[in-house]
């Protein structure tokens, strides 16, 4: 138990070298336009990102991956990965997500030799599926013996703590303010993880139009410190 906790803490570290550091997923567009400029406006953005994008995309995907792992259906894992890729219409966010997925897979594959993770790595190598952070995280969490609730929640936490670090640098916010935000968003992470578990398949990939548009517009943002 304790060892699993420590392993999860390691995977959720926002300093994990996965490349997430370089992607804002549209946040930078809002910062450039002035719509996000402080803790309050950032938390408004973050709440929407968590309860929409994370819930309907990563959350449902994690749940589907767990179903597939329990049935030993690697083909279904490939399908989820490919759907995640093509539902991401903004190019930079799609490519960035793929890069982070690749980075996580490389790293987690070095840390653990779980059979499903190795098999997934092979499918990625054969280009049968596009790597995605939610998929890599879910497979690894499954290998560590996590329940699906835990896997979704920890994946959300890892993603959000990374986003907060990016916001601290970019807006900028104080380091303490960032930690306070993380504290405040925790109940929402819990709620959203619970919600995601109960969402039907047909809700997979539902987009919030504004978030998606900001991710498309990032291609044309003049001053950029992020790749998406």
């Amino acid at each position: 138990m304790t060892d699993r906790m420590l392993a999860l803490l390691q995977l959720c570290d926002s300093n994990l070298p996965t490349g997430a550091f370089s992607h804002s997923f549209g946040l930078e567009t809002y910062i450039q336009s002035g719509a996000v400029s402080d803790c309050v406006s950032f938390e408004e953005w973050l709440s929407c990102y968590v309860s929409e994008q994370l819930a309907y995309t990563d959350g449902i995907a994690c749940r589907m991956i767990y179903d597939a792992l329990e049935d030993g259906e690697m083909e279904a894992i490939c399908t989820v990965g490919n759907q995640l890729h093509v539902q991401n219409l903004p190019r930079e966010t799609r490519q960035g997500t793929r890069m982070i997925g690749e980075g996580m897979l490389r790293l987690f594959g070095r840390l653990y030799d779980f059979p499903f993770l190795a098999e997934y790595g092979l499918l990625v190598k054969e280009k049968r599926t596009v790597p995605h952070p939610a998929v890599v995280f879910a497979i690894t969490a499954h290998g560590l013996g996590c329940s699906r609730d835990e896997a979704i929640l920890y994946h959300f936490y890892a993603t959000v703590s990374g986003l907060i670090q990016n916001a601290v640098r970019a807006i900028p916010l104080g380091q303490t303010a960032g930690q306070l935000t993380l504290n405040r968003v925790r109940p929402l992470l819990q709620q959203t993880a619970e919600k995601a578990l109960a969402l039907p398949d047909e809700d997979f990939g539902l987009v919030a139009p504004g978030l998606e548009l900001s991710q498309m517009q990032h291609e044309r943002v003049n001053v950029r410190i992020f790749m998406s």
């Binding site: 809002y30 719509a35 406006s41 408004e44 953005w45 929407c48 990102y49 929409e52 309907y56 399908t79 490919n82 759907q83 093509v86 539902q87 219409l89 809700d203 997979f204 990939g205 539902l206 987009v207 919030a208 139009p209 504004g210 978030l211």
Partner: peptide
Amino acid sequence: GEPAVFDNVRLSPSEQQVGGLGFMEGYTHL
């Protein structure tokens, strides 16, 4: 035969704050 685009949009004014940041952001038409 391979997935190329998947686009899923839902606006549920009965459940969401459709006008807010991240959604319609003060606009009315999509």
